[in-house]
Design a binder for these strands. Structure first.
Lengths: 111, 111
DNA sequence: TTGCTCCTCACGTCACGTGAGGTGGC
DNA sequence: TTGCTCCTCACGTCACGTGAGGTGGC
């Protein structure tokens, strides 16, 4: 079996990738905005972590949102996604039921 | 016809109702967070405006969100509501179609 | 006149970014 | 040793709340 390893980045590389100060990354972790993996005591940032950092950066630097706001915005976006998934599931169920109903009709027509 | 008038409040009353400084209310208007009606040059706050002020207050004072964050959060909440409405409408349509399909089946059964 | 409204300006505080300084393990 | 990591502390800047000061119309 071939293992494809996702890349991980230590703090200096992660910070350079997103154009942030390493101390900012530590600050974001301290207040719970991001939770990089650890190898011993060293932080390891995944590709998803980098993506999350970029979204933090967009909200703070481009939109002027503070860190408390970023947290709330992330929560709301997660809720929206959950809502969308739930709705989609509901719709898929209804469509399945509809198909069964129509097939029932078709069978009767064939009798 | 009886006209029921919604109450409106001048800035000092509105500020006292929500426990804010009148200058804060003017600041929120300046950056576009709230848009009270005007009578001449005077601001008139509706019940909905008061409610919006309370939501601003909750986000800023209790949650620590800054004003840029409040704006984004309001946008997201509006989007969520729109999404919910759209989905509900979609589901209602599907349910109507389902009822038609089932009635068709029932009519055939009766033949 | 009193008490409100409007406005602008200025100051204090706090959040947050970031640099310094000192530590420890590849 | 060099260059990274970790941490804490401190400082500068900016957002925002709020007070002062001066205006105008019921």
């Amino acid at each position: 079996m071939v293992q494809i390893e996702e890349p991980v980045y230590v703090i200096s590389i992660a910070a350079r990738l997103v154009g942030m100060h390493p101390q900012s990354l530590r600050l974001y972790e301290r207040i719970g905005l991001i939770r990089p993996a650890r190898e011993g005591n060293k932080r390891l940032y995944s590709v998803q972590d980098i993506e999350r950092l970029r979204r933090i950066q967009h909200l703070t630097q481009d939109m002027g949102v503070n860190l408390a706001g970023v947290e709330i915005v992330f929560d709301l976006l997660a809720k929206m996604e959950a809502m969308r998934d739930e709705m989609m599931e509901h719709i898929a169920e209804m469509e399945a039921e509809m198909r069964r109903e129509m097939e029932k009709g078709n069978r009767r027509e064939g009798e």
